[in-house]
Design a protein around this nucleic acid. Structure first.
Lengths: 173, 173
DNA sequence: TCTGAAAGTTTTCATCC
DNA sequence: GGATGAAAACTTTCAGA
């Protein structure tokens, strides 16, 4: 799939949608200088190009009772492509894996778990890390404060200067 | 603020909204066995209780040209409450900080950066980590593969069994 | 607290620029 | 590509149970 060509209005729209996807087409159009239907056409283009996925509701982790976030740093035993593929499949099977990244550097995977209560957290960590034949070692960092959570991505390097600082800020500040 | 009381329907609705917040009230109501207006009343309750925040559009990082995700493990110099507060404020000023967690264990903060191109990444890491007076040391783990990204939270411990495995899965699988 | 219907908006699409 | 306007669909409110 070839990358979509994005102009300035596209970058602005994508930043706005990542902050609040519930705004109306008219509202968005007013902000970027387009009619509602022109906004819709662009949004449909992002979707069919695979750039824009679903809209999701964001919960505030501080308001979910007993929620425990933890960051697990994982070193795996056997880094063949095939074993890697299988390990990633096991991670994806677990709904508690909120995020998983294959990384370069001192570890092989960074996995963020979202669990309800310590019992749950331990059970999941045991299954995914302690008992997994492909994990050499791992460390758990428990989250004391989720300073910021979000999945907003910049679509271009922000211009230097204060005016653009808000552009890609996540929705859960 | 006191926690909201959530029944089974609430847990189901919250899981559905975290997967796809664009579904209609009628559609959601059909799935959980309520009328559209009953669903609306519950959603409004989550919002006013602070549990449910904005809806956000999720981009696929693999489709954003030049996007670089990196996980930075940070050890800080001076862990007084006041210095910690100031450091978190500096992190929150940077739009490139997609996620930041204060953690217990081998490091003090885990920071996920989302940047456009290596030049941008280096510039941000220099500012937030190398040049920050409160950072003792840090390591950068570059993301080779974003196996899963998302912010879905479970609101209750999932029952054991295959039926519930999809319940809280993120929207970007 | 729910249902069901009415009123007000929004999304969507055909058409023209 | 974008604007306009009409039709369809959705959200929101409220009366009644």
């Amino acid at each position: 799939m070839t990358d979509l060509m994005l102009d300035d209005v596209d970058h602005d729209l994508l930043a706005l949608l990542q902050r609040d996807a519930s705004r109306t087409l008219r509202d968005l159009g007013d902000e970027v200088g387009l009619s509602p239907s022109a906004v819709l056409r662009r949004v449909q283009r992002y979707r069919s190009g695979g750039l824009l996925g679903h809209n999701v509701a964001v919960l505030d982790p501080r308001h979910v009772p007993e929620v425990i976030l933890s960051v697990c740093l994982v070193t795996i035993e056997d880094d063949t492509p095939e074993e890697g593929r299988r390990y990633r499949a096991r991670l994806l099977e677990a709904p508690e894996v909120q995020q998983a990244y294959e990384v370069s550097g001192d570890y092989d995977y960074v996995v963020v778990l979202a669990c309800v209560g310590m019992r749950h957290e331990n059970e999941v960590a045991k299954r995914l890390f302690q008992q997994d034949p492909n994990v050499k070692r791992y460390t758990t960092l428990f989250v004391l404060d989720p300073v910021r959570t979000g999945v907003a991505l910049p679509t271009r390097e922000p211009p230097r200067g204060r005016a653009s600082a808000e552009e890609v800020r996540g929705a859960t500040d």
